[in-house]
Amino acid sequence: MSSQILINGIVIGALYVMLALGFSMIYTSTGFFNLSHGAILLTGAYVSYAAGALWGLGFAASVVIGALAATAIHVVAAAGIYLPMRSRGASMWIMAIGSLGFAIVSQAAIGIVFGTRTLNIREGYVAPVLQVGEVRVSYIDVAIIAISVVLVTATHQFLQRTKTGIGIRAAMADRDMAQAVGIRVRSLELLVFAIGAFLAGTAGGLYALKGAIIYSMGGPALLKSIVVSILGIPFGLVGVFGGGIFLGVVENVVVANWSAGWVDGVSLLVLIVFVWLTAVRARVRKYR
């Protein structure tokens, strides 16, 4: 494996880590697979595109605006759709299908507003490239890795060090008991949703900045979130981080040696094999 493939894999992996951290936090705290996670990335990417290419804002501002818009929309969905569904007794997979419905709606809305053809946020702009020996890395790639590391570390510190963070972890461990000590679990769940959506929305903006914005990229993004989360959750944050980088590198090796068509199959195969081999009794709170 050449070091170029490795570094390309790490850059993609850094985006997967952001996606999967948000996905797994939402899963462990609210107990359902948020199948609109790919749509969050899509929203982040398209709003970033609108901010950057249509309104002429800078790259950094575009990404932030995209992430905030994605966060707002999906927190409203959580507060207005998913959590009320649970109060009405919906099981985790029913909630998941509800979130999928929302993903379909938001994807269609994006298609109606922006069209479905591939877009480019930085038409004509070529990012400077850092050359280290044989390896070439664009400044955007460096920024992606840096932002991913900063956001993931900040999230981790928030969960570990702050009172609210400890409350979130308590609610993840035992929802009822957390309420019994006076925690407003529902508000914290919405906060987790906001954090998760912000991470995914940022990943969307960065993804748009890195390459083209493809209308159908929400589905694959959801897949990566699921695969990395399942690989990572039993091993905590380090697991999610390692899982994301691992998947990014594996995919790049597959693309380099075989063909791009196998990528999704390979990542899902990784997942199935993992599930088979370990029959994970994940230490996440089971949905009640």
């Binding site: 009172k163 400890i166 972890r169 308590a170 461990a173 957390a178 000590v181 230490r283």
Partner: peptide, 14 residues
Amino acid sequence: RVFGELTVAENLEV
């Protein structure tokens, strides 16, 4: 039903 994933100090803080 202590919070198993939290430390004793964190359990008390919660």
